[in-house]
Write a protein that binds this DNA or RNA. Structure first.
Length: 801
RNA sequence: GCCGAUGUGGUGGAAUAGGCAGACACAAGGGACUUAAAAUCCCUCGUUGGCGACAACGUACCGGUUCAAGUCCGGUCAUCGGCACCA
């Protein structure tokens, strides 16, 4: 009988949705499993075939865990604030709320058409005031603890989005989203002190089960480096500090460099005879965009300060000070010591500006290039450090500096504080009021949510203010503290705000009193398994870990780390092996696939496509194999014979397949799990019939992958209850082995024969059997046996000469 | 430049802990069924040589360890991802 996937899939999707079949239970005594996938941004383009790769994988894990008796929470929601919706609204003069609503409805329909077992009773939306009330509440807690602060600073400004960007959103000097130029602009911005959590965010990685590349990427991004902070006196009688990881090279310091933005330049201004030249250089540096700084900056520029010099504390010699933009104001102290002999940037600078190069670590040729090796060199020209290794010298010089009050051990991070303001409309209003008398005052918690007002135009202003700034009725308010006139903050939060805690809301999504009840958070937290894209490693994943650590510190959540386990899926590429994009014309639309092959085939194919963690190109012909497999499964309906047991010829195959599918799913090796099921099906076909017991196990194993087809077959064949309520099959280890196995006989590692032997055969018997084989005997003819070995279940190898 | 990953047939990819390389599929070729096509079913399918049972070679490249290497070690090349003047 023909398998009508369109009708069958729709039927079950409706049934599951109307009956809340996959709703998590509120019974907190059951063993729990919280599976999480990144909730989508509901764009106008609809679902991408990349989304279902992640969603299907954890859907499979969730469905299996339910059959194993877990209380599973597998939720879904909408990360709906954000620029594309706002830009669409500007262009078409439609309120972003209406656009969002429409997009969400479309996404939801598409997700349901794929048969995911999401708990739709817990659906959330970051733009819902009942939700963003708590986003604002968390911000206020950060503010109260001094972790949210406003700062006049140079920010990344996207000229096209007319909006500031976080450092993480600037890619190769251009805007991550639109690809347009990013320039520096001094603006007053809300900042979150993520740097205060740098250490905890590194240490926390030891307590979680994240795939290694996520851990290393986060560690590199945070960029911890240990070194020494060293004081240098100047000829003007004052002093300044530098940070160095190579304090051992102090005797080789022949100049200093300070960043063009450094405040010391102002302090020294009237003492500098070439101040005009310095000012011109500062202006030039400020004009450079990030793109110019990173792409064109390999050639060193700079100006020597006339009228001030530094004193090397080790040699007590005067050394020149330069200003140069290769030193960043935002890292370390904004000043560095120049060691041209042992740092390639300093070497290039020294060569260009004629600064002497001194060798202090022997082993290279500092006339030709900087010698940066720390492992093998020996200290020279370095007074009391001479003869030491680099490591010994680092310790000795640090002690020497500390004793004299000239230095301290310091740790620096590449991580910067998080720029949290956006001059845009479609985001959570920042719940702060500015009062001339009282400064920045939080909106009282009782007044949350601070609703986003309706505006006439969503267009950002050219002077860089949010469209909210034009809403004077809304902006002008009274100070919650003194009652005097005050105005509201008009910047909104970045898109990352709502997604930094959304998983907590799933635990208790309708709670009016708290972001979630304590009991719910204690039962469900932490997320047991979180799968998502690598592109979120240094953004969403880091931000949400930061917020969760903070919420832990103020006693809201039960663990410091939000996610016990993190895995990552590879991208699905276009058929030509390139990234899918409209401009390349290689986009595959999930709706078309569901229409043509059905959801079960789509799910199966996305899991069979290859290694889950690797990128894989879409293939419109390979998917046919998956459809063919499901058609063959359906055809089992006509092959059923009585019998609750496995047939003798397939018994061990069944046990081994259960074993393999069970473990493969947990390791996200879906492709080999499916291959095992295909092999088993081929075995059933060879036998030409299937017992009721065999069919039951087979469709239960296949159920997480192809839930509609298997549920229908379950009902058709009259098994008890529903398939989604049955038990996951168990295997018997003893029955996984077969009585007779095939081993190979090798001479000097080359295969000469294949032998059928009993599984329990002893080594001497196996070797004797091998020797009895004609081909083996022929190969041994006239040779001396040196060694004989038997690898149980695998092979016999006879070494001869 | 630094950090990480990857490299296997025409294609996607398999191969616990070093033990039959190419599972499972796709594509291709041949055959059956059919008026025909689609669908389905059966066979072949790493390369070279041979009519042939068979032999030699083969997991990016060079070398090493081992009875045995896709897998371990040293080096080289290529591709992808991340970071990139971070002192």
């Amino acid at each position: 009988m023909f398998y009508d996937y369109k009708q069958i899939e729709k039927k079950w999707q409706k049934h599951w949705y109307e009956n809340n079949t996959f709703a998590a239970k509120d019974d907190y005594t059951l063993p729990k499993f919280f599976a999480l996938v990144e909730f989508p941004y509901p764009s106008g383009q609809g679902l991408h075939v990349g989304h279902p790769r992640s969603y299907t994988a954890l859907d499979i894990v969730s469905r299996k865990r339910r059959l194993e008796g877990y209380n599973v929470l597998y939720p879904m929601g909408w990360d709906a604030f954000g620029l594309p919706t706002e830009n669409f609204a500007i262009k078409n003069h439609i309120h972003p709320e209406i656009v969002t609503e429409k997009n969400v409805a479309h996404f939801k329909e598409q997700l349901q058409a794929l048969g995911f077992s999401f708990d739709w009773t817990r659906e959330i939306n970051t733009t819902d005031p009942d939700y963003y009330k708590w986003t604002q509440w968390i911000f206020l807690q950060l503010f109260k603890k001094g972790l949210a602060y406003k700062k006049e600073m140079s920010v990344n400004w996207c000229t096209s989005c007319k909006c500031v960007l976080a450092n993480e959103e600037v890619v190769n000097g251009v805007c991550e989203r639109c690809g347009n130029e990013v320039v520096h602009k001094v603006k007053s911005q809300w900042m979150l002190k993520i740097t205060e959590y740098a250490e905890k965010l590194i240490d926390g990685l030891d307590d979680v089960n994240f795939i290694e590349r996520v851990k290393t990427q986060q560690k590199n991004w945070i960029g911890r480096s240990e070194g020494t902070q060293i004081k240098f006196k100047t000829t003007l009688g004052d002093e300044f500090e530098v940070f160095s990881t190579r304090a051992d090279t102090l005797f080789g310091v022949t100049y200093m460099v300070i960043s063009p933005e450094h405040p010391l330049l102002e302090k020294w201004a009237d003492k500098l005879s070439n101040i005009d030249e310095v000012r011109a250089y500062q202006e030039e540096a400020a004009r450079k965009s990030d793109f110019e700084r990173t792409e064109l900056a390999k050639d060193k520029t700079g100006v020597k300060l006339e009228g001030v010099a530094a004193i090397n504390p080790a040699t007590e010699q005067e050394i020149p000070i330069f200003v140069s933009d290769y030193v960043l104001i935002s890292y370390g102290t904004g000043c560095v010591m120049g060691v041209p002999g042992h740092d390639s940037r300093d070497w290039a600078f020294a060569r260009k500006f004629g600064v002497p190069i001194i060798e202090v670590v022997a082993g290279g040729d500092v006339e030709k290039e900087a010698y940066t090796d720390c492992d093998t060199g020996v200290m020279v020209n370095s007074g009391f450090l001479n003869g030491m290794s680099v490591d010994e010298a680092k310790k000795a010089i640090a002690d020497w500096l500390i004793e004299r009050g000239l230095g301290s051990k310091t740790v620096n991070y590449k991580l910067r504080d998080w720029v949290f303001s956006r001059q845009r409309y479609w985001g959570e209003p920042i719940p702060i009021v500015h009062c001339d008398k009282c400064g920045y005052v939080p909106v009282p918690e009782s007044e949350l949510p601070l609703l986003l007002p309706t505006v006439d135009s969503y267009e950002p202003t050219d002077n860089g203010e949010s469209p909210l700034a034009k809403m004077t009725d809304w902006v002008n308010t009274t100070c919650p503290h003194c009652g005097g006139p005050a105005h509201r903050e008009t910047d909104t939060m970045p898109q990352w705000a709502g997604s930094s805690w959304y998983f907590l809301r799933y635990c208790d999504p309708h709670n009016k009193e708290a972001l979630a009840s304590k009991e719910a958070l204690e039962y469900w937290g932490p997320v047991d398994w979180y799968n998502g894209g690598m592109e979120h490693t240094t953004l969403h994943l880091l931000y949400s870990r930061f917020w969760h650590h903070f919420l832990y510190d103020i006693g809201i959540v039960p663990t410091a780390e939000p996610y016990a386990k993190r895995t990552s899926h590879g991208m699905i590429l276009g058929e030509n092996g390139e990234k899918m994009s409209k401009s390349r014309g290689n986009v595959v639309n999930p709706d078309d696939i569901v229409n043509q092959y059905g959801a079960d085939t789509m799910r199966l194919y996305e899991m069979f496509i290859g290694d889950f963690e690797k990128a894989a190109p879409w293939s419109s012909s390979s998917i046919k194999g998956c459809k063919r497999f499901l058609d063959r499964v359906w055809a089992l309906n006509d092959m059923v014979v009585d019998g609750d047991d496995y047939s003798a010829e397939l018994e061990s195959d069944f046990h081994r397949t259960i074993q393999k599918v069970t473990s493969d799913i947990e390791e996200l090796k879906m492709n080999t799990a499916i291959a095992a099921l295909m092999s088993l099906l081929n075995g059933i076909y060879a036998k030409k019939n299937v017992t009721r017991g065999e069919l039951k196990t087979f469709i239960t194993l296949l159920n997480p992958f192809a839930p509609h087809l298997t549920e229908e077959m379950w009902v058709m064949n009259g098994y008890d209850g529903m398939l989604n309520e049955t038990k996951w099959p168990v295997f018997d280890e003893a029955k996984c082995v077969v009585a007779s196995i095939e081993i190979v006989a090798q001479i000097n590692g080359k295969i000469k024969a294949k032998l059928n032997v009993p599984a329990e055969i002893t080594a001497p018997d196996a070797i004797a059997l091998a020797k009895a084989d004609a081909a083996v005997a022929a190969a041994m003819e006239g040779k001396t046996v040196i060694k004989e070995l038997y690898v149980p279940g695998k092979l016999v190898n006879i070494v001869v000469k």
